[in-house]
């Protein structure tokens, strides 16, 4: 549905994007992840035709954004980082304007505006001025304009930026409700959001694409276990390190000085828990807690931005 083909964008000496190539199949929710200045917004602006690439091409549904802008843009709904709303308009007038821009048929417009408002939770504020709405509602209005015309591709640039936790959660649920119906490109530097919403992640760093993986693959790269053991014996740590399935032991701080808290990086054999229980029962040391540590996207991101490869 979306195809970036060797796309680069330069700003003077700065390479904002360098040779980016990826495609997004229909219905997928793709997270574009990166620190500020990584090139996420530039990539989205190129995709939506707001910027032209220095080299390479971008197509949507097989239509090149530069060569066939009208056809390509009909398939896009775009929410830029700051919601593009007009404070002096009511939500209804604004959504009607968005529908007109997206060439929605005049007869169907009222029904379409009502449907979009219902989907985005704006039905109660349709006749209120946008300038009088809260940040959360303004952001919803921005999402609603992106949905006008029922575009196949929805591009959301940091849609939760500046929202409070409740609004954040509502926005996340809204995006999840759109998944499946639309192909969604979603950018954020808040990694947990990408985790909650996306099925695939691309990480950009200094304009380069350093990672393109399914979220599942990223998270299952390492198995880690957090253990809390009722002992501070140094021998215990060396015994843990000698276990066949344990690859690495990292000690963590614990408020109780009599306890050892550690994260064990283990292989994928599935024998780690058995070996651990056997060892601790032989040492007659109580195991107080054993829990798996999910490999968070934060870890992956930090590793990726340090190594520039995953």
């Amino acid at each position: 549905m979306i195809a970036f083909d060797h796309v680069s964008k330069r700003y003077g000496a700065l390479n904002a994007l360098q040779d980016i190539t990826f495609s997004v199949p229909k219905g997928q929710v793709l997270g574009l992840l990166g620190q500020n200045g990584a090139g996420k917004t530039t990539a989205m602006n190129i995709l939506t035709g707001c910027l032209a690439p220095s080299s390479g091409s971008v197509s949507i549904g097989g239509k090149d954004v530069l060569l066939h802008p009208r056809e390509a843009k009909r398939m896009i709904g775009y929410l830029p980082e700051a919601a593009p709303v007009y404070d002096e308009m009511t939500v209804r007038a604004y959504l009607r304007f968005a529908c007109e821009l997206k060439e929605v048929e005049r007869k169907a417009m009222n029904g379409h505006v009502e449907a979009v408002a219902e989907k985005t939770g704006l039905s109660d504020v349709l006749d209120r001025k946008i300038g009088n709405l809260s940040k959360g509602y303004r952001q919803r209005t921005g999402v609603a304009q992106a949905l006008c015309g029922t575009p196949e591709v929805i591009v959301l640039d940091e849609p939760t930026a500046g929202l409070d936790p409740r609004q954040n959660s509502e926005m996340r649920n809204l995006i999840l409700s759109l998944a499946g119906e639309h192909t969604i490109l979603f950018s954020s530097h808040i990694l947990s959001e990408v985790q909650a919403v996306c099925s695939r992640v691309i990480i950009l760093h200094h304009g380069k694409m350093i990672c393109d993986k399914a979220l599942r693959d990223l998270q299952s790269k390492e198995h880690r276990l957090r253990v809390v053991i009722d002992s501070r014996d140094e021998k215990l740590l060396s015994a843990l390190r000698q276990l066949h399935s344990v690859l690495r032991v990292e000690i963590e701080a614990n408020p109780n000085p009599g306890l050892t808290q550690a994260v064990l990086t283990v292989d994928g054999s599935g024998l780690a828990e058995r070996e651990l229980f056997t060892l601790l029962s032989a040492l007659q040391t109580p195991l107080l807690r054993l829990s798996p540590v999910e490999d968070s996207l934060e870890d992956v991101f930090l590793r990726a931005t340090m190594d520039e490869t995953v």
Binding site: T48, K73, A83, V85, Y86, L101, K102
Partner: peptide, 14 residues
């Protein structure tokens, strides 16, 4: 100034 230009530029309107 209001960032609404991106909405217009990304629309099918030439």
């Amino acid at each position: 100034q209001r960032n609404t230009d991106q909405m217009l530029f990304s629309s099918p309107c030439p």
